[in-house]
Design a protein around this nucleic acid. Structure first.
Lengths: 244, 244
DNA sequence: TTTATAATACTTGTATACAAGTATACTTTG
DNA sequence: CAAAGTATACTTGTATACAAGTATTATAAA
């Protein structure tokens, strides 16, 4: 059951109700995205089971998940870590742009008062998270913001795409925001502003404004992999200090 | 290891190298899509393990796969079958339209001679499959046609979406084509024509023609669920006769 | 020294065992 | 008869055992 884990990158409170497999996947995912586990590394079920002090069953679950996210490739002997190149990060945003513009087209045709109310609430939460320097909470609200928009159009296959993208997105945003809170705290007012613009775009049913704010939002999060790696180095040190 | 299975809807030769879990998933998937297993049914791991004469391990794998395809929902006790409504089938085609138009935009910018050559080969294969009334082979080539186009732009996350969509698409096309071979054989010249138009559109870099042929292609496959169910009834009878 | 072969130590896939938790049905008590 | 509580037969999640196959390494022969 994963006792006394070290180097925990993933917020523990997000793991509340999840199975051991999901917990392992969440932790491994961040290690891969941040570069702690390098691309090309071969992961063995047995070794991972030993490392995490669990049996192979949840490890297998975790590897399946990571494989479906394109972070690893399952092979006959061992799972090879693919990691995220800059190209792939751009591709993720291609897809987000694709689905969010699709969703926006749907939003043009329906009543959005409830939605914008909900989104405003989330933005308020983001402001609180900023005020208290809570990077994880901010990341959570950021993701929730976009997920709320996507869910509002009730399109099961668009939602499926989001769900497949979400874990990696979550990792990217988490690492990016943690870095920003430490080194670029001044960014946040602009990020909040962008989200408010997004809400305005929905209210005004203004395609151009929506795409604009979406692009700005991406630019904010789209830290290059090197930045994330640097961020991760800092975080590891933080964790080690905590453990002392 | 799944000995002596009955009511096999899924082409056995497609299962060549796949694990037991994938085999179970493939078979269950067709049963769900075709309606043999009704929406709302509660699937139990133990019962499925007994039915398929395998252990729970591959069953669990299979259920995970089907859950990621939105065909079932995993709950605390049992997995509830969601099935495919007409709305969801339309949503699948929304997504296909979304990704194939995205891919087409990329194709406009690159050399496509190799691709169209490959596609022409596939269309030839389709013609042979038609000639010999091989519905399964035709379905295979039809799927391969679109996958080849999608792969050609080398976009890992677009490919991820395709991979997530593919199993359900495969099921839909398989059932639809089997029905057509029995009842609407005259459809096939038009289907082939559409694919040839698609190739032309790529060669001519003609957006309009591409969307047109894509839509026509969808209309051809987009049989309503009731049709598939009817088709499946016929097929079951066929299998039973074979087993006599 | 090089090559071929055999032994060994890994790998994953599947089966089984066990533990923790949940719904159902029955029994007991009011 | 009704209601509450308990026993039982399920469920899934995790751990372990086993089997089949693969890569590596060591050994033996040319």
């Amino acid at each position: 059951m994963m006792n006394e884990p070290k180097n925990l990158l993933y917020p523990q409170k997000w793991l509340a109700k999840s199975s051991t497999g999901e917990q392992v996947a969440s932790e491994l995912r961040l290690h891969i995205i941040s570069g702690v586990i390098e691309s090309g590394t071969i992961l063995s079920e047995n070794k991972l089971a030993a490392e995490f002090a669990v049996s192979r069953s949840p490890i297998r679950d975790a590897l399946r998940m990571l494989a479906s996210e394109n972070l690893i490739r399952l092979e006959r002997m061992g799972a090879v870590v693919l990691g995220l190149t800059d190209k792939e990060i751009e591709e993720i945003y291609d897809v987000r742009l694709l689905i969010e513009t699709f969703v926006f087209e749907r939003l043009l045709k329906i009543e959005t008062a409830d939605l914008t109310m909900e989104l405003s609430k989330i933005v308020e939460m983001m402001k609180v998270a900023i005020k208290y320097h809570d990077a994880d909470e901010f990341s959570y609200q950021d993701l929730l913001f976009h997920e709320t928009i996507i869910r509002s159009v009730e399109h099961s296959y668009i939602l499926m795409i989001w769900n497949n993208l979400k874990p990696v997105m979550e990792g990217l945003i988490l690492l990016s925001m943690r870095m920003r809170f430490k080194e670029k705290y001044e960014d946040f007012p602009r990020i909040v502003k962008n989200h408010e613009l997004y809400i305005e775009a929905i209210q005004a049913k203004d395609r151009k404004l929506m795409v604009q704010s979406l692009h700005d939002n991406f630019d904010d999060v789209q830290g290059k992999v090197e930045d994330l790696w640097r961020s991760q180095q800092i975080l590891i040190k933080g964790v080690e200090q905590q453990n002392d």
